[in-house]
Design a protein around this nucleic acid. Sequence first.
DNA 1: GCTAAATGTTGAT
DNA 2: TCAACCTTTAGCT
Length: 264
Amino acid sequence: MPEGHTIHRIAVEHEARFVGRPVAVSSPQGRFADALRLDGRELRDVEAYGKHLLYQFAGRRFVHVHLGLFGRMTTAPEPAPPARATTRMRLSADGWYADLVGPTRCQLLDGDQRTRLVARLGPDPLRDDADPTAAWVRISRSPQPVAALLMDQQVVAGIGNVYRAEVLFRAGLDPYRPGVEVEPEQWEGIWADARRLMRSGVRSGRILTTDAADRPRRSGRVPAEDAHYVYRRTGRACRRCGTPVRSAELAGRTLYWCPTCQQG
DNA sequence: GCTAAATGTTGAT
DNA sequence: TCAACCTTTAGCT
């Protein structure tokens, strides 16, 4: 679930439900003890930077949430069910509540800490203030494989294992090509494509990247089978050319690609 | 009931 | 490069 599109989706929803109101903040699990210091304060803003969520409360206190691999945010109208033993944080205001479970991070930051956090992130394709040139400067000078660079949050913020695999497939780019050998036009294409795909991910809540996913259907629901070109399709026929999709470990994560379609 | 895997990051070696 | 951490779920038995 959680690549940048998930985080931005949460930010949009929480902006609408909670910003501009005093918010009840608690930590049923007890591991976010600072919840007590925020409880009842007005929430001023919610922002997403890459995979990071930042809630700004009155008094310039920020809650920094990172879902990591397993984290989940559930937002729904009240009444809220009893919190689970693992509910790290619960927000509620005005008839809505949100439960955070299993995050890698849920911590209180001051303004300086928030600034430092944002400063270390590369441009986020989902943000209008993003400057893709900043990413290009790093990519075009790096000997690292482009597939590793796309996953580096200091280079580009918000892309995860699914978007990286799918964007490289759609660009026809060999994932092992060193950043220095990527053409500027290729990077422009990847950036534009990532923006498009991720925006549609914010809308749908899913990562859908194939032509098959675009096809209108009676059910309105795209089956998981049709969602991706290569992600988690090891050994199955490439949708474009039939070559078996390959996979390999790269920097601790599984990379998926089509060796025929991705030679560019 | 158990195990492995998962769209992620950090800190130690 | 590797292990640790956060939690749920799918696929076994």
